[in-house]
Simulated scan of single mutants.
Amino acid sequence: MDVVRTRVVLALAVAACSLPLAGCADGGSSARPEETPVTETPSGSTAAAPGSADVRAAVADLASALGVDPAEVEVVAVEEVTWRNGSRGCAVPGDMYTQALIDGSRITLRAGEQQFEYHAGGSRPPALCENPTE
């Protein structure tokens, strides 16, 4: 009888541990994983100010990618946002992201006639977002 009881307890433990993971499954949801709504949050913080480290990093990255002088990259806008998840508004289909709110910023840059959007937040540096999904 102890073997049966052990198996039942083990089965219940596995089931209990699996419940928190059930929300991660697709489950046929009609929402596309690449959709990441953004909630803009006004703040007095200077973390996303035009001279901030994130903005300087985004300008340097874009200048390097385009092979231009950083002085040729114009900062068009810097907005503080709260990203809905770890994709920071730039989800890649098939990738998984933390499902927590992430404070960050949307940095819009211009080089020549083209505009580029960088998304920053959490502990990750700003990254070029070629297909924003907010």
Rank of each mutant, 00 (worst) to 15 (best):
M1S: 14
V3E: 13
V3A: 14
V4T: 10
T6P: 14
T6A: 11
R7T: 08
V8D: 11
V9I: 02
L10P: 13
A11P: 01
A11Q: 02
A11S: 08
L12F: 05
L12T: 03
A13W: 01
A13M: 07
V14K: 04
A15L: 15
C17P: 01
C17M: 07
C17D: 07
S18P: 13
S18C: 15
S18H: 09
L19E: 01
L19R: 03
L19P: 04
P20N: 11
L21I: 03
L21T: 02
G23S: 12
G23Q: 02
C24E: 05
A25E: 02
D26N: 09
G27R: 08
G28W: 12
S29W: 10
S29T: 15
S29L: 11
S29F: 04
S30M: 10
A31V: 15
A31T: 12
R32T: 15
P33Y: 06
P33A: 14
T36F: 06
P37S: 07
V38N: 00
E40P: 08
T41Q: 00
P42D: 09
S43V: 15
G44Y: 06
G44S: 03
S45L: 09
S45A: 14
T46A: 15
A47P: 04
P50T: 02
P50Q: 00
P50V: 04
G51C: 15
A53W: 05
D54E: 06
V55F: 10
R56S: 10
R56I: 12
A58S: 09
D61Y: 08
A63N: 05
S64M: 08
L66D: 02
L66T: 03
V68D: 04
V68N: 08
E72A: 14
E72D: 11
E72H: 09
E72C: 09
V73G: 00
E74S: 10
V75K: 01
V75G: 02
V75E: 00
A77F: 08
E79H: 14
V81T: 05
V81F: 01
W83A: 01
R84V: 15
N85H: 06
G86R: 00
S87T: 15
R88G: 06
R88E: 08
R88S: 09
A91V: 13
A91F: 03
V92K: 11
P93F: 13
P93H: 08
P93D: 12
M96F: 13
Y97D: 04
Q99T: 09
Q99S: 14
D103M: 11
G104Q: 00
S105G: 07
R106K: 07
I107N: 00
T108E: 01
R110S: 12
A111E: 05
G112L: 10
E113F: 12
F116C: 14
F116P: 02
E117W: 11
Y118F: 10
Y118V: 11
H119R: 04
A120S: 09
G122H: 05
G122E: 01
S123T: 15
S123E: 08
R124E: 02
L128P: 06
C129P: 01
E130L: 11
E134Y: 06
